[in-house]
């Protein structure tokens, strides 16, 4: 078992600068070791066939399928379209005023969600960390995880019931002497509703990783801080927060990566034509243009644009994070 390991080093070490044998020999050696690897591990490789087929068909083929953004697509025809039309669909959406509306809505909703839903779990985790009563802490955790396990349809249903004219929220409005409002029909309320329900859904579950990171902080650090005269606040600021910074950065990068894909399913469930002016985002627009109206090529062009922005965002966030604080996803 150990001999072959020395003969063909694992790929990670291949990246190291090799000693200077002639190029041709290296290639031949590489091919030989591939043959050897397959002879030795063919059973392992065979196990990878079905999963690889899955990735090729259901992940990479759709990526290629995005060429229909540049080709005319006929329903029932090839999934890669019929003939090239160049940047026609791209020009089309760039001059489509609705596209710019939904683009702005996406940025605003995504930005607000990030601003509210990223820091809240950190705060809740810090508060939970200060609870000394075991069962109380566990109880709060269990309750706050609950929304994570519900279908988004159920959450949308509950939202609609609570925000309806006869719902709980309007009861409170009434009690305070206000006029009952059909909140889900008012564009000016949509962002508030979206972000607060998003917080309700995600804050508890989001604490898990922070709580785990908090337990790994060395107690000696607190000890040292106390000897230096640091109070609770300064211990939190100088020991606790730096201790969970890698977790924070990783989750921040991931959040930024999903920034453009703001809760598509939830918006699809709770928006309506009356609230399109604030609720309609790129993904819901793609859904309506592509699936409902059948302009698949046009919708694919917009979808591709969104996906590329998402990829750029996550790559640049990761790059900046690696440069500044040394945390990287890979």
């Amino acid at each position: 078992m150990s001999t072959p390991k020395i003969l063909d080093p694992p790929p990670t070490t291949l990246a190291e600068p090799p000693p200077p044998p002639p190029v041709t020999r290296k290639v031949r050696k590489g091919r030989q070791s591939w043959r050897r690897a397959i002879r030795r591990d063919w059973q392992l490789y065979s196990l990878a066939i079905l999963p690889l087929l899955f990735f090729v068909i259901f992940r990479y083929l759709p990526m290629l399928g995005n060429v229909i953004a540049f080709r005319r697509f006929r329903p029932g025809g090839s999934i890669f379209g019929e003939r090239w039309v160049g940047l026609r669909y791209v020009r089309m959406f760039l001059s489509d005023p609705t596209f710019w509306d939904v683009f702005t809505n996406t940025l605003i909703l995504g930005g607000l969600t990030l601003l509210v839903c990223f820091p809240l779990p950190i705060v809740l985790a810090l508060l939970l960390n200060e609870v000394r009563t075991r069962y109380l802490k566990r109880f709060v955790q269990s309750v706050s995880y609950l929304p994570h396990f519900l279908s988004i349809v159920i959450i949308a249903g509950m939202l609609m019931q609570m925000l309806s004219i006869d719902g709980v929220v309007n009861q409170i409005v009434n009690a305070l002497g206000g006029e009952p409002t059909a909140f889900l029909q008012k564009p000016e309320w949509f962002r508030t509703i979206y972000v607060s329900s998003e917080a309700w859904q995600t804050v508890g579950w989001g604490t898990i990783l922070y709580l785990a990171a908090l337990t790994t902080i060395d107690n000696d650090l607190y000890e040292a801080a106390r000897i230096d005269g640091a109070g609770r606040w300064r211990q939190t600021w100088h020991v606790t927060l730096p201790g969970i910074r890698p977790t924070m950065m990783t989750l921040l990068i991931l959040n930024i990566g999903t920034f453009m894909a703001v809760g598509f399913e939830k918006i699809l469930l709770i928006y309506n034509p009356l609230t399109y002016s604030t609720a309609d985002v790129i993904s819901t627009y793609v859904f309506r243009v592509g699936i409902v109206s059948g302009n698949l090529s046009y919708a694919a062009a917009i979808g591709l644009f969104e996906a590329l922005i998402g990829l750029t965002l996550v790559l640049s966030a990761n790059f900046i994070s690696r440069r500044t604080v040394g945390t990287s996803l890979w």
């Binding site: 068909i57 259901f58 992940r59 990479y60 083929l61 759709p62 990526m63 290629l64 399928g65 995005n66 229909i68 697509f73 999934i79 993904s283 793609v286 859904f287 592509g290 699936i291 698949l296 919708a299 694919a300 979808g303 591709l304 969104e306 996906a307």
Partner: peptide
Amino acid sequence: GGLIPNYVL
């Protein structure tokens, strides 16, 4: 790939 190519596939 996004919604549309997946749907088409």
